[in-house]
Amino acid sequence: MKVALTGKRLSARSIAILGLLMALQLVLGKFPVFGIWSVRVDFVFLATFIMGWWFGPWWAGLAAVICDLVNTLILGGSGTYFVGFTISAFLGGVIYGVFFYRQNMSWWRVIMATLIIMLVVNVFLNTLWLTILYKTPFWGILPIRILKDLILTPIQVLLVYWLGTNRNMLSLRDRL
């Protein structure tokens, strides 16, 4: 029971690596380095992906939760803290973990993981949270969000696959 809930115990080394990855996730959220029209792309998902790939669903989900807390409560991200977005962040980490932890990288996996996160987390859940929190009309903003995510999905697929098969990243994973 204990193992199921907490995952494996972490060494000081793993804690430090996860902490640094979390810092990196926060930094990547502040550098939207490229974009088309007003759709800005940030690379937060890449840090989450690495956490899921290296540490598994449980720790990746947890780290994503902490990042969400830090981002909204401490660094003062946009809007306010709302537990729904934390759930979304957790699910994002868990999904990457389930798909990539101790698995071989393949296009199919990357596409499925990205699509599920996009549809379930970004399109459905996050829109639902906005509706609950601010009474934003669900069907009113849904098309816009779907359009945005349609543009982002192929970009995310390409980047995740590229990072997951990168030689440097693979050698880092072997040093874990």
Binding site: L20, V70, L75
Partner: peptide, 13 residues
Amino acid sequence: LMLSIALRFVPTL
């Protein structure tokens, strides 16, 4: 601990 490490290293990164 992860939280404090992350906070400490955001400026550095």
